[in-house]
C-alpha cells in the first residue's frame, strides 16, 4: 500500500529514535544541534563576532578563545555560531522556496493541457542540464553579490529539479483509483490537488528537501567563498573559509574550523535525509 507518511514518522518520535541505527541517530542529533545553533547561536557566542582587536589577531585555540581568533582578532567560535544563520537558514530558505515553487509549477502542469505540461517539463529539462552551481554563480553575480542574491540565485536554478520530482509523483498519484473516485464525485481542481493528489505525492519531496539542504549548504558556502554570496566581513562560513585560507600556514584554524563545520552540516543533512528516505519507502501506513 502507501508508504509510511512523514507525519506518522513524527508521531512517535521517542520510540522511533530508540530503534534507530546509531549513524542515523547521530545524523538526526547533529541536525537538531545545528538547528539549535541557528536559533540560539548568537546568545551562546562568548564574544562579538565583529569586534576587531588586532592585538589579539591569529591567536591559536586556547582557554580564552576556544577556537582561536582570525587575522583581525575576531573570535572564531563566535563567528561560527553567528554564521549558522546565514549559511543554514539561507540554505533552508533556498531549498524550501525551490520546493514550494517546484511543487506549485508541477501541480499547475498536471492540471494544464498536455502541451503546456510538456512545455514546462522541457523547460525544466533544459534548466537541469546546467550545473546548479554554475547557474547560481552567474545569477548571483548578475544581481550583485550578497546573501540575498545567493538565495535568489539558488532558488532560480534549483526549482526545476523539484518540479521534475513532484511531477513524476503527481503523475503516478493521478492514476490511482481514489483520485478517479474524487474526479467522478466532481470535486474542484483545487480540492483534487490539495486533498487527494498532493498529500499522497509529497513524501519523496520532503525527503528530497532534507537531502538537498546539505548540498545547498555547500553551494551557499561555495558562493560566498568565491565572492558571489555573503560578503566579508559578515560571519558566513564560506566567507570565513575564504578569508582564512590566506593564513592556512600561519593560522590554520581560521579556515579549517568553518570548513569542518560546513562539511559536518552537509554530511548531517545528507545522512538524515537518507535515513528519512529509507524509513519512508515501502512501508505500510501505521
Amino acid at each position: 500500500m502507501t508508504s509510511m507518511t512523514t507525519s506518522a514518522l513524527l508521531r512517535r518520535p521517542v520510540l522511533r529514535l530508540r530503534r534507530m541505527p546509531k549513524l542515523d541517530r547521530a545524523a538526526f542529533a547533529m541536525v537538531g544541534l545545528l538547528l539549535l545553533t541557528v536559533a540560539f547561536g548568537p546568545l551562546l557566542a562568548p564574544y562579538d563576532p565583529y569586534h576587531v582587536d588586532l592585538g589579539q589577531a591569529m591567536l591559536p585555540p586556547g582557554a580564552e578563545h576556544w577556537l582561536g581568533t582570525d587575522s583581525s582578532g575576531r573570535d572564531v567560535l563566535s563567528r561560527v555560531l553567528y554564521g549558522a544563520r546565514p549559511t543554514i537558514l539561507g540554505s533552508l530558505c533556498a531549498v524550501g522556496l525551490s520546493a514550494l515553487i517546484g511543487v506549485t509549477v508541477a501541480s499547475l502542469a498536471a492540471l494544464a493541457p498536455r502541451w503546456v505540461d510538456d512545455a514546462i517539463m522541457r523547460i525544466c529539462d533544459i534548466a537541469l542540464s546546467l550545473p546548479i552551481m554554475v547557474m547560481a554563480l552567474g545569477i548571483s553575480v548578475a544581481l550583485g553579490p550578497s546573501l540575498r542574491s545567493a538565495i535568489i540565485a539558488m532558488v532560480l536554478s534549483w526549482w526545476p529539479s523539484f518540479t521534475r520530482l513532484a511531477r513524476a509523483e503527481i503523475r503516478t498519484t493521478m492514476t490511482s483509483t481514489y483520485v478517479e473516485s474524487a474526479v467522478i464525485t466532481g470535486v474542484s481542481r483545487w480540492r483534487l490537488m490539495t486533498r487527494h493528489v498532493l498529500p499522497n505525492s509529497l513524501d519523496s519531496v520532503y525527503v528530497q528537501v532534507t537531502l538537498e539542504i546539505g548540498g545547498a549548504t555547500l553551494i551557499m558556502a561555495g558562493l560566498s567563498f568565491i565572492g558571489a554570496g555573503a560578503q566579508p566581513p559578515s560571519a558566513e562560513w564560506g566567507a570565513m573559509v575564504e578569508s582564512g585560507s590566506r593564513f592556512l600556514t600561519s593560522a590554520w584554524w581560521t579556515a579549517v574550523v568553518p570548513g569542518a563545520v560546513i562539511t559536518l552540516t552537509a554530511l548531517a543533512f545528507a545522512l538524515a535525509g537518507d535515513a528519512l528516505r529509507a524509513r519512508t519507502s515501502g512501508r505500510e501506513v501505521m
Binding site: T2, Y178, V179, S181, I184, R195, H196, P199
Partner: peptide, 15 residues
C-alpha cells in the same frame, strides 16, 4: 454513483 472493485485502492489513505 460508483462502487469500485478494490477498496484498498479506492479510498484516499490520507482522509
Amino acid at each position: 454513483q460508483l462502487v469500485f472493485q478494490n477498496p484498498y485502492a479506492s479510498l484516499n489513505p490520507r482522509m
